[in-house]
Computed example of a mutant assay.
Amino acid sequence: MLTYTAIRSHETALVRRFFLAAGLLTLLLLADDAFMLHEEVLPHGLGIRERYVKVGYLAIAAAFGLGFFKVLIRKNFSLLALAASFFAASLLFDNPEALQAVGLWENDFVLYVAEDGSKFTGIILWLTYLVKSAVENLNRLMRG
């Protein structure tokens, strides 16, 4: 969101909205992870099943991806694809019943490490993508 503020009068509306939306999406995911919204608060506090919350997050991510497709594929696409792959792996590992039902994981500790490791790697790659994109945009604007 800092990049949005810095470029708001120097960039196209699409790029400005991209950085604002990316900041808000990142803030939502940060709040979810910090307060365990999809695992505890929403299912137990409000009665919203975890799978519906996950589908909601996937819908938000899909809307973000479709809405900013042109911006997303311009630069650093390999970082973005890697981040998305690790987030997808995290979602897969976050469903232990399905994995254990087909005999893929018997050890809960390994499953926990795989899920959190995938999520952490996805977070680092997503933040790297955003920082690299922001720096490239700001450098281009500073050069003229």
Rank of each mutant, 00 (worst) to 15 (best):
F35K: 06
S85L: 14
E39C: 01
L37I: 14
Q100T: 12
L37H: 13
V41T: 15
A21M: 02
V102R: 13
W105F: 15
W126D: 04
A114F: 14
T26I: 02
M36E: 15
L99K: 10
I124Q: 09
T26F: 01
A89Y: 10
E115C: 10
A62L: 10
N76A: 08
I48F: 06
A31Q: 02
G65S: 03
I123N: 11
T128N: 14
K75I: 08
F109K: 04
E106G: 15
A21H: 02
F93G: 07
L127E: 11
I124D: 08
A22W: 03
K75R: 15
E39Q: 12
E40D: 13
S90Q: 09
L37C: 11
L82N: 02
A22R: 02
H44P: 05
M36C: 09
V15G: 03
K54P: 00
L79V: 11
S118P: 04
H38R: 11
A62Y: 05
R51K: 12
L111I: 08
L37W: 12
L72R: 00
V71K: 01
G122A: 08
L29N: 08
K70G: 00
G45M: 11
A101L: 13
F69G: 01
L72G: 05
L30I: 11
F35N: 08
G65V: 04
V113L: 14
G45Q: 13
E40Q: 14
R51F: 09
F19A: 03
L29C: 08
A22G: 01
V135M: 14
L99I: 11
L27H: 00
S118H: 13
F64P: 01
T26K: 00
L42C: 08
K119I: 07
P43T: 11
Y129H: 09
L91C: 07
A31I: 09
D108C: 02
F35Q: 07
P43R: 09
P43L: 10
L20I: 01
P96G: 14
M142K: 13
E40R: 12
A34T: 12
L79E: 04
N76Y: 04
L127V: 15
A63S: 01
A84E: 01
L28E: 05
V55N: 03
Y129S: 12
A22T: 00
A59F: 04
A81D: 03
L28I: 08
G65L: 03
D108H: 12
A61P: 05
A13P: 00
V131R: 06
P96Q: 15
K70H: 03
V110K: 07
Y52E: 01
K54T: 03
S118K: 07
I60W: 05
F93Q: 08
V110L: 14
L130E: 08
L58C: 04
Y52N: 04
A89E: 06
I60Q: 03
A83T: 06
F64D: 01
L29D: 02
L127W: 08
